[in-house]
Amino acid sequence: MIRYSVVFLFIALEIISLILISNNKGYQRSVMLSSGNAMVGRMYEMTNSFVEFFKLSEANDNLANENTQLRNRVVELENKLSTLTDTLNSVSWKNVSVSPEKEYSYITAKVIRNTTHLSQNYITLNKGSNEGITPDMGVVGEEGVVGIVKSVSPKFSVVIPILNPKILISSKFKKNDYSGPLVWNGKDARFASLNDIARHVRFSLGDTLITSGLTKTFPEGIMIGTINDYNIKESDAYYNIQVKLAVNFRTLTHVKIINYKNYREQSVLEQTAADEGKKK
């Protein structure tokens, strides 16, 4: 009898594990059992402050570079603006407004947990819903796209990076606007593959790939990577393209979360339209 009860216990425990695994497959999952959990998050934050010390100089260089670029951009825009205000009269100038899909702001956060060697990687950040982060927000680094926020707790959030086959990033060629989904192949943290690019599309090695702006997560034009290699079989209709990712996930320390102001309005509208479509 005791022999059998051990077997039953074994089966019960394995079933619980399987339920946990299958619950984890969905897009949303319990924050309780992940590194978004407050206690686990705090422990990682502690060890991370230690590790971060060694990455400081590199992070510093990157920030300095970005700073210079931004300053240049500010000067450029200021010059344009002053020439424009001179030519336009002040009345019509006040009516100029930003187009609604471009109304977004950034929230900066620090990476406190990051893996690149698993077949499904996750990143934990040190900011959460207290700072206004919600699931499905886009996450970018200094060089380009990092991933999408998956779940949030008050103080932490968990990001699915490009290095996880669970997400697709809608991307397009900068030069000709042909778009396709970018997905990770599970092998190398430096590369991902671009699918659904048809045979007739013309492109070459080194071409730049940017976000398509067709999802609410990323605005158009954020750098993703460059074409590293491609091939196409005689019988295939689509190219097999290898993309070198712009972001170095091994040294990622700080990221920016994109807070799209009209997210709610746009999703509600799209949802209503889809629901009405179903009824008819």
């Binding site: 394995e14 619980i16 339920i19 686990v40």
Partner: peptide, 17 residues
């Protein structure tokens, strides 16, 4: 181990086995 490595259930299953 699963809680720390975001792998809900995988290490648990293998270790119990």
């Amino acid at each position: 181990i699963d809680v720390f490595s975001n792998t809900a259930g995988m290490h648990t299953f293998a270790l119990v086995f």
